[in-house]
Each structure stands twice: as C-alpha cells, then as structure tokens.
Design a binder for these strands. Structure first.
Lengths: 152, 152
DNA sequence: ACATCTATCTATAATGC
DNA sequence: TGCATTATAGATAGATG
C-alpha cells in the first residue's frame, strides 16, 4: 500500500526497515485496538524490534498478564515451561538435601540405626564423641567465666 | 474500508460483529506476519473473542513462550501469577528448613556454639548423650551377633 | 453461518522538505 | 534525521449467492 508494491521479505536497507517498522507498528496497534472495540474482544500484542526494544499493546480494562493467564487455561499450552521446570528442579534438589540432613540428625540422635553398616556406625560414634569433646571444651570455658552462664 | 465508513465502537448486531471479527482477525494476523518478515522482528498476538475462544499468532522461528520470556526480562513485568509465586514460596520454605537443620547438625558436631545460651548448650549436650546411649545399645546388639559386624 | 465480490476506505511506500 | 504529503496497494463493510 503506497506508491509502490513491495515484496513481503526482510527490508535490507536498515533505514527503510526502521521507518517501515515505526509505521507498521503503529498500524498494527491501531488495528488491534479497533478489533478490540468493534468486536468486544481482548487483544494483546507484543513486538520486539530487531534491536531488542519492546513494544506492546493490550486492550484496556485488562492486562497482558491476565490475557496470558487466560491463554494458558484455554490453550493448555504452558508458556513458562522452562522457568517452572527450573523452579521445580530446585525444589527437588533442596528437598533431597533436606532429607539427607534429616537422616543425619536422626542418626546422631541414635534413631534409625538398624539399616546402617558397622563402618557407618563407627563414623557416627566418632561424630558424637567429637561433638561431646567440643561441647565439654565450650562448657569449660563458660564455667571459668566470671559471670553466670545464663547471662552470656 | 469498505462500502461504508464505520465508527470504531462496539458493533451491536451480533452477526455483523462475528463477521467483522473473522475478517479483522485475519487482517491483524496478516499484518503481524508482515511486520515480522519485513522488519525482522518477533511478534506475538493473542486474541480472545467475546465468546472466549482463543486465537493467536507468533512469528516463526520462535514461540509465544520465548517472546513472553523476553517480554518479562525487558519490561520487568511479571506475567505469571499464582503458580510462580507458590513455587517460589515453597523454595523459600524448604530452604529455611534446610538452614535450620544445617545449624542443628553443626551444633551436634560441636561447631558454632559461641552464640548459644547456656540452656541451649545443655539441650544439645543431652541430645549428644542420648545419641551415644542409643548408639552403645546398638553396638552391643551388633557385638552379640554371631557373624562379623562388617557383614551385616 | 460461510464464501465471494466490489466499492470504498485505510495504511503506507515513496517522495519531498 | 525526522515529519508531512500523496499516490497507490491493501483491507474490508456491505451486498449477494
């Protein structure tokens, strides 16, 4: 539409490309607004220029966020699959750490020892003894302090 | 554009509205495709008809998901609502649990005791002694077994 | 409700300043 | 470089089958 017909393919001249981008972006947003009003629909448009700049439009009385939420429930497509996967993976990882520590704690308390090898029991025993040694040293320090331990 | 000019306001006749919706939706998507190709940009469009039906377009070689990911990093707006928040919250919760157990373990090993109150030290000491008691009982059982402990 | 047609309106490519 | 103009291509409102 204009003085000459153009082929729909990337405009090589970067100046022309930029100019056309501005014009057509405005046009696209205008059309989006119009269909929204005329047909009483919700419309969202997101455009990234090749320079990475962001432009968007969305019908009044709603938000991209809300439109996309609807999009997901309607299409069944998950838009943020990757992000969610990452978060879920982190949860799994942390929970596993958690379980391991839980078990260690139990062992140190003398619980759930039945499934352990002798070697492992020895290690725990050593851990307990180290702990007590350290603890006694600490207590000793406290007892030699000139004030009551409760106030430390 | 057409036999007559129209005002940009909701089309009351529902048949006309539906027809216009189809036509303009096609037009909008075509424009989106064109600006994408001509200007080498990424474009995403989401439309909900008033009947709740979903239509969308997105440049080839990408996906709405990717476009929206970019949208978020560029705009700083968060598009995903509850789900994401819930996952984040769970991560926080689990990590906190994690930290607490980490600390307990350290304490039982006799580390990081300096910041503790006397009362807390006593509790830990008791824990250690319980642990050792339980441990000794366990060891005693093992020692009375008819096979070498290593093979258990 | 759906496809086709066409007169008319709109968007815009090229141009000029 | 960016805005205003204008001739033309493209989109589409209403009509018709």
């Amino acid at each position: 539409m204009g003085r000459g017909k153009i082929k729909i393919k990337r405009i090589e001249n970067s100046t022309n490309r930029q100019v056309t981008f501005s014009k057509r972006r405005a046009g696209l947003v205008k059309k989006a607004r119009e269909i929204g009003v005329l047909c009483d629909t919700e419309v969202g448009v997101v455009i990234f220029s090749s320079g990475g700049k962001l432009y968007d439009y969305c019908s009044p009385r709603t938000s991209l966020s809300r439109i996309l939420e609807k999009y997901q429930t309607n299409s069944g497509k998950i838009l943020w699959g990757e992000k969610h996967k990452n978060l879920s993976a982190e949860i799994d990882r942390v929970k596993k750490e958690n379980d391991n520590m839980q078990i260690q704690l139990r062992h140190l308390k003398g619980e759930d020892l039945n499934s352990l090898q002798h070697r492992e029991l020895i290690a725990i025993e050593e851990g307990l003894q180290n702990g007590q040694t350290n603890m006694r040293e600490k207590q000793a320090v406290i007892l030699t302090l000139p004030v009551a331990p409760e106030l430390i």
